[in-house]
Write a protein that binds this DNA or RNA. Structure first.
Lengths: 210, 210
DNA sequence: TGCATATCTTATCGTTGTCAAGATTGGCTT
DNA sequence: AAGCCAATCTTGACAACGATAAGATATGCA
């Protein structure tokens, strides 16, 4: 393994090192299986000295924050795309959940960074609620019969769905589930079944059974 | 801060250093807010050299494994205790979920180690399924009307409950939920509502509505 | 043109995980 | 009971890490 690309005589001032560092970080997260990304490795990948990042990020966690924000954007985009491809007859809430979990399966390191970052801040990224994936969930809930004027009811349901999706995303890889997956006919069917159970309450709301 | 207890002239051979290291680790996890426990710090706390642990654990992750196993045991114990105190009229499944989340709230560092360890092994600790908290969930599911002979149905429901509980445990601290918590009358009520929604399918099973 | 400032580098510190080699001890063999 | 072996613990070392300080270099504005 050669030391990245040293040949190119980069000018002393990089131009947009911040951007380059974020992209280098994303590249490493996609490549590495273990998500423990090192700030020095990111600098190396970007072709700068170990101390250079500190002129653009206060510390390592701020770089991870930037990577997390990109990740949440990417997730929302993918969920929107998957939702557009969903058959009208199918449960759109479950489709969103499957898209969420699929993203976490295909980008495990990035997803880990995304959620760790949220946990450190004890908050979801604000954009998520306003224009991101959370809004898609709320729309699907209203579509499935929830009263849009009942703000707290909607909030409760959205919270429940989000927690369920995250829980499934973090556990779906466990080996104990293999027999059940096989029995149900694969991981997608497994996800459909589990998420279907957990979002049953949305269907229940259609009939005002209290 | 003094260097733990150096005064006691410990004999060259410790007696049961493995045990002492696990307990030192647990002590540090309870004290530290950030769960990043350092192997050297554990050795320091136990009063031995930085290399001593390597005669009892292959590497740092094996020490964490041992801490995780203790944690899962402790969780099962607490869930059993909480379940015993539950009012017969209340939903036992929700009570178990609340106990689970409460444990993760009161022992965040230990819980993090527990779950990280599970994720690294892509498996829950085996004792969990056989005699631990998972069995309590299955019992509660059967009690709520699930057909005990339908193994895969029970597995699916248990899986769903476990995923939901984990998801809630990891997100309950988010600030975005504060308004909803306040509206529902506190965190316990919040948990009861969210977990109640997510485990609605268990109640549904009572009536064979398909 | 000249200078303040932003940017990047080199050098360094303290910490960590891990290993190798030596010191010390407990227990088994005879 | 004497002696050796293996387990245990120590010291010492290495590479990698996050982070800071001090110096080099380029940019942009006066």
């Amino acid at each position: 393994m050669e030391p990245a690309r040293v040949a190119e005589p980069r000018p002393y001032h990089h131009g947009d090192l911040r951007r380059a560092l974020v992209e280098a970080g994303r590249r490493l997260l996609e490549a590495e299986n273990g998500s423990d990304i090192s700030l020095r490795a990111v600098a190396r990948e970007a072709g700068v000295s170990p101390a250079a990042p500190y002129h653009h990020f206060r510390d390592k966690s701020e770089l991870l924050d930037a990577l997390a924000i990109e990740g949440w954007d990417q997730l929302a985009e993918q969920m929107r795309a998957d939702l557009a491809l969903t058959d009208p007859g199918q449960d759109r809430l479950v489709a969103l959940g499957i898209a969420y979990v699929r993203f976490s399966r295909e980008n495990p390191a990035i997803y880990r960074v995304m959620f760790d970052c949220s946990q450190n801040h004890e908050a979801m990224p604000s954009k998520l609620r306003e224009e991101g994936a959370y809004r898609l969930v709320c729309d699907a809930l209203i579509e499935s019969g929830l009263d849009p004027s009942d703000e707290m009811g909607l909030e409760l349901a959205g919270t429940a769905v989000w927690c369920a999706a995250h829980g499934v995303a973090e556990m779906v890889g466990f080996r104990e589930f293999s027999p059940l997956k096989a029995h149900l006919g694969g991981e997608e069917a497994f996800l459909r079944a589990v998420l279907g159970q957990l979002t049953l309450f949305a269907a229940e709301r259609k009939s005002p059974a209290g």
